[in-house]
Amino acid sequence: MNLLLKIWRQKGPNSPGKMVDYPVTDISEDMSFLEMLDVLNDQLVVKGEEPVSFDHDCREGICGMCSLYINGQAHGPERLVTTCQLHMRSFKDGETIYIEPWRAKAFPVVKDLVVDRGAFDRIMNVGGFVSVNTGGAQDANCLPVSKVDADKAFDAATCIGCGACVATCKNSSAMLFVSAKVSQLALLPQGKIEAQERVLNMVEQMDVEGFGNCTNTGACEVECPKGISLENIARMNREYLSAALTGEEKKEITGGF
């Protein structure tokens, strides 16, 4: 197949960017979208032009490194897949394909299609964990968890932190990402102990990072490659309300040395 790619090119974080046209020819339907970009890049290198920078790593839909807003949709037109799992058979010969980076204030562009998603890490750093040190854990089966809760926690925990929810949300809200972690830990007995501080801290950090607010359009759930449910956002809202109303005053957490 032959295609016309319109790709966002931007030299660095503070440089202006623009959409640039790249025709590509002889693309196989069995190629993944990123392999198609590999072909383009090899051609650009040989021609002496700068290849297009894009994030990718595992290429099997689990690391969350790849991104790309393809034809106006996060991870392209297919449901429940990341860009690396998107295959060219999803496109038609002769099609024009727009390829852009995730757009959000909290995800500044590093170069071309690469963005900085460090905001997600910083949200995790303030509460996305159970405060348990290595060693001294009790026997795993001393902590029974109902299968229903365990399954729900697992479903929330499958979030790969790719940022498609933010990219696709008209408000660039990170609620789906944050709520997935809050939910996973709120559903499990291990996580209940710190549930209140966790939700308050993570939501506060989310706001500090400059993400927008959730207006429940539900776009994130549709575009999420892992199918993380909106139910998690509701659960986080519940957790947040109850923590805000009944939680203790914030104390500095200390421990270790």
């Binding site: 319109k6 034809n71 008209k170 408000n171 660039s172 400059g210 993400f211 927008g212 607010n213």
Partner: peptide, 12 residues
């Protein structure tokens, strides 16, 4: 806030 959260819009 929501408008500020995305200073550069998508081309498409």
């Amino acid at each position: 806030q929501n408008r500020d959260a995305r200073p550069v819009q998508y081309a498409y």
